[in-house]
Nucleic acid binder design. Structure first.
Lengths: 156, 156
DNA sequence: CCGTTTGAGTTGAAGCGTCAACCAATCGCG
DNA sequence: CGCGATTGGTTGACGCTTCAACTCAAACGG
């Protein structure tokens, strides 16, 4: 327990507190809207969105987990839920029996299309319209740098 | 279902995706370190930290909830856990029986002091050291603007 | 005063995420 | 070939957060 801790100075602390505040509040606000209007959480939405942009609206599980920024385990649970709602199908991949391919159904796609406007509106309200274009660019760069430190694999 | 949705353009989408990525990964990484090294999650840490900086190391519940960026219900559960670990005490406020005052115990304070260096190190590693001082300043401003939109009450 | 309303906090149930254990298929090396 | 290691994915239990219902105390209003 060496006492050479490099504490944060006042500026650093303020910045971190501000970020932490956003970290605590923004996800909840996003989830709230999605849950209320579409009975989805942000991660479920991301999964549907990622599938909708994939060739054949299909993707293998581990790919999809990376795309949606989650773990395979979390994805597995979520896909099970989405499957039971009829939004997604799962089938084993022929050429390698270990792999599972998830596919967005037509119902799932339609549901996503219905959910998207409300979600985009929230993203605008909370993020895009709250910032200038320059700030948005700064935020993009900053977010990527932080993400890169947190998760050195997967340089997006 | 009017079709006047203002979709995001490419730049906006990239920025949002970058932010969303950080939103998904950073909290988990922070929680992981705290959980592993101190059996605390980020919110519990914030509660202890907020108490430690309060006069008498005490604060009424609703105050504390705001300070730690959480709801009263969440706080109530968390304080119960922390109380059972001996880190916090609760007592009714004499002058108004509705109010509950939470106090950080000496054990809780010591525990926080032991947990702090590891936590600060992570904050440095993932955030402070990943950014230039200018970026950190930008992030502070941006985070506050977003938080203000999400939660118009409580201008911090 | 008494009844209603409001405010502060607690509680329990339900849902989601994490973690570790597990299963199944394939690879790879002796 | 054959068997251990590795990879991809699933599962169940547990813990935390949310949500709605509830309790209790104080304030208000006639």
């Amino acid at each position: 327990m060496a006492d050479d801790v490099r504490w944060l100075d006042a500026d650093q602390l303020q910045a971190w507190m501000a970020l932490a505040g956003m970290l605590f509040k923004l996800p909840g606000a996003l989830d709230f809207q999605l849950q209320r209007d579409s009975s989805l959480n942000h991660f479920e939405y991301s999964v549907l969105a990622a599938l909708s942009e994939s060739p054949d609206r299909s993707r293998r599980m581990s790919d999809l987990a990376g795309e949606a920024n989650g773990t395979l385990s979390r994805l597995s649970h979520v896909v099970k839920r989405l499957e039971s709602r009829g939004f997604v199908n799962r089938r084993p991949y022929e050429e390698d029996g270990r792999i599972t391919v998830a596919t967005l159904t037509d119902e799932g796609f339609a549901y996503l299309l219905a959910a998207a406007p409300g979600h985009v509106e929230m993203v605008r309200k909370y993020v895009i319209d709250a910032l200038t274009p320059e700030q948005l660019e700064q935020l993009k760069v900053i977010s990527r740098q932080i993400t890169a430190k947190v998760d050195p694999e997967r340089p997006c």
